[in-house]
Design a protein around this nucleic acid. Structure first.
Length: 509
RNA sequence: GGUGGGUUCGUAUAACGGUUAGUACUCAAGAUUUUCAUUCUUGCAAUAGCAGUUCGAUUCUGCUACCCACUACCA
């Protein structure tokens, strides 16, 4: 049985978005479940679209998610350029593999599977425009190649000359005119496509001596001994070409699985950066700053736990068929199966993402949450010992979705309210409430005593308690009064009551 | 336009060709709670349409509709 090897092969044209993270995740889960390798390869064969910083971002984003490639990236998070035992196929950046591809392109020409094309971009542009004017679509394939400038139509000595003296030529795949390519997809099953409408794709460009995606991809997957290609649905239309390329080279081809796209939460179309901005959710795993200085916020900075993010993503387009929804990464590895990946596109639901985070937050220990909250407390100038913070966190964690919610929930445990919510004042600040409430606060030291006191006097529990809460926290809703007093102490509670009485009565009067 | 892929409650999804079409999120109602939140209970809500195969179709086939992707010397 051959060792399973899969790869995630992004193009460094910008930040990795959540759809890309999902593709990487599924690859990773597939590999780890089978005890195989997960390779990261950078497909930077398009120098025009290269974005500085994108590669680093991709690697860091995967690390934040807990996805560490077995091959391609070293311990420090750098792409590996020199072969070693751990990284036998280095370099893993296609731009650094430049010398490899030309030979393969020329082998294809020798074998009759490809040819040299000398048409300039302007000539092709013109041909396209003319076809369009006639209401047709220009396709560079069997229907047109006979009338274009290439090694199939030009005399041999002219071809020779052009190859030698010009640098504007390409190698194109000679797509058969009429062949039904029968393909199998691990997710979609059997697919058949006839080659008549397919075009002669450019495989290699003399101008920059670089392959296009199609050639580089097939060559590298073969050289790197990739056994399964798990990639986005946008590649499905290229699958016949890739099948034919494997056939042309006489190589055993890997299994293929095409993942559906992530769709925007409302309306139609795939998820884009714009949707995130518009609906207020991140589409990127972490903060991205473009070379121009534009920023896009990410799940990390929005306070999501990487485990929650990954869990949410894993279940967007896959589920194990059970009713379990919370999965750790190792559990995902164990349960994952490519056959159960959903064929149709999945609309992303930001509400569910929040729900996942809430679940993970309550799973987290109070100690760890307290540690995460500390920087904010320090920034706010709050002085409290760690043990107390842990107790507070334990008390409030079920009311929060993010650690960043903590302060809004519990700020009044650290300082007295400066104002009182008008709505609650109108509702609870009545003489028949605050007179006994003040008295109760003077006499009682705990929540239990307060309750007992109110009961003994046969006063309305809700009204008096809410009135006390209003004085202690500035609002009629929130934490239990016993809990508030326990944390701020009886003296502080009494002081707050008196301050509230003074403020509210002078306001009213 | 062409080629390919897809379509179950609002969303994510479950259902050997036989179920009162299940679950989760959201939303609504009720219970609990000194309030809010939590928790618990209940409820709302779906097989895109039309044919065909079959005793029986969400499931298989065809057509239509709609959505998506691709159709670059981009990936």
């Amino acid at each position: 049985m051959k060792r399973t090897r899969v790869r995630f092969a992004p193009s460094p044209t910008g930040p990795l978005h959540m759809g890309g993270v999902r593709t990487a995740l599924y690859n990773y889960l597939f590999a780890k479940q089978k005890g195989g390798d997960f390779i990261l390869r950078i497909e930077d064969t398009d120098s025009h679209r290269f974005v500085p910083g994108a590669e680093k971002y991709i690697i860091e984003a995967l690390r934040w998610c807990g996805i560490y490639p077995d091959e391609g990236v070293d311990k420090d998070g750098n792409m590996v350029s020199v072969p070693s035992e751990r990284h036998p196929h280095a370099p893993y950046r296609q731009s650094e593999r430049k010398p490899i591809y030309r030979k393969y392109a020329e082998d294809l020409v020798s074998a009759g599977w490809a040819y040299y094309a000398f048409d300039s971009s302007e000539e092709l542009e013109k041909a396209r425009a003319e076809a369009e004017a006639r209401g047709e679509t220009f396709i560079y394939n069997w229907s047109t190649r006979e009338n274009l400038r290439n090694s199939l139509t030009l005399p041999a000595d002219e071809v020779e000359r052009l190859l030698r003296d010009t640098t504007d030529w390409t190698v194109r795949f000679k797509m058969p005119k009429d062949r039904t390519v029968r393909m199998d997809d691990l997710i979609r099953g059997h697919i058949e496509v006839n080659t008549v409408t397919l075009d002669d794709k450019v495989l290699w460009k003399r101008a920059d001596e670089l392959p296009t995606y199609h050639l580089a991809n097939i060559v590298d997957d073969h050289l790197m001994e990739v056994t399964e290609v798990i990639r986005g649905e946008e590649w499905l239309p290229s699958l016949p070409l890739h099948y034919l390329l494997y056939e042309a080279f006489g190589w055993e081809r890997p299994g293929f699985a095409h993942l559906s796209l992530l769709l925007k939460p409302v309306g139609n179309g795939k998820l884009s950066k714009r949707d995130g901005d518009k609906l207020g959710f991140p589409v990127f795993p972490m903060l991205w700053t473009s070379p121009e200085g534009e920023t896009s916020h990410g799940y990390r900075e929005d306070g999501y736990f990487p485990e929650a993010f990954i869990n949410m993503l894993a279940l967007l387009g896959w589920n194990p068929g059970t009713e379990q929804e919370i999965f750790s990464l190792p559990e995902l590895v164990e349960s994952f199966s490519i056959e159960k990946v959903i064929k149709s596109g999945a609309k992303f639901n930001p509400e569910k993402a929040k729900w996942f985070n809430k679940e993970y937050l309550r799973l987290e220990s109070p100690e760890e949450l307290a540690r995460m909250w500390m920087p904010e407390l320090e920034e706010k100038g709050v002085k409290a010992d760690e043990k107390k913070i842990v107790e507070i966190v334990d008390l409030i964690k079920e009311r929060a979705t993010f650690v960043s919610d903590f302060w809004n929930i519990a700020w009044y445990l650290f300082k007295a309210p400066a104002e009182y919510a008008g709505k609650d004042v109108a509702k609870f600040w009545k003489e028949e409430n605050y007179v006994p409430a003040l008295q109760a606060c003077k006499e009682c030291r705990t929540g239990e005593e307060l309750e007992e006191w109110i009961r003994r006097k046969e006063l309305p529990m809700g009204k008096i308690m809410n009135c006390i809460r209003l004085m202690l926290s500035g609002s009629g809703s929130g934490l239990g009064i016993g809990d508030i007093i326990r944390f701020i102490g009886h003296d502080e509670a009494l002081a707050r009551c008196e301050a509230a009485a003074k403020a509210l009565n002078s306001q009213a009067g």
